[in-house]
């Protein structure tokens, strides 16, 4: 599965970097999200869905590895 972030929407809350530091970081420059990995195995899906649902800017989306469609932030509620 692929992980995508929209830096234009990100508000730099750090929620992703705090709870899932394996996948997310914050840039020193602008405080906005930086991905540490663009791909993750299926075992990471629950954690990544939670990260997406916690993001206050809805800036994190999950996509199938073929890059089509979205596993959507809203599925994890």
């Amino acid at each position: 599965m692929g992980i995508r972030v929209d830096r234009d929407s990100c508000v730099g809350s750090g929620a992703c970097a705090l709870f899932e530091p394996e996948f997310f970081d914050q840039s020193e420059e602008d405080g906005l999200v930086v991905l540490r990995a663009r791909e993750a195995g299926a075992e990471a899906l629950p954690a990544l869905r939670r990260a997406a649902s916690r993001c206050p800017a809805r800036a994190i989306t999950l996509v199938p590895s073929d890059g089509q469609g979205s596993a959507g932030w809203d599925r994890s509620d």
Binding site: V11, G12, G14, A17, L18, Q26, S27, E28, E29, D30, G31, L32
Partner: peptide
């Protein structure tokens, strides 16, 4: 405004 201050409030 938010971008002026966001870098100073990161988790790190």
């Amino acid at each position: 405004l938010r971008r002026l201050v966001a870098p100073m409030f990161t988790v790190r």
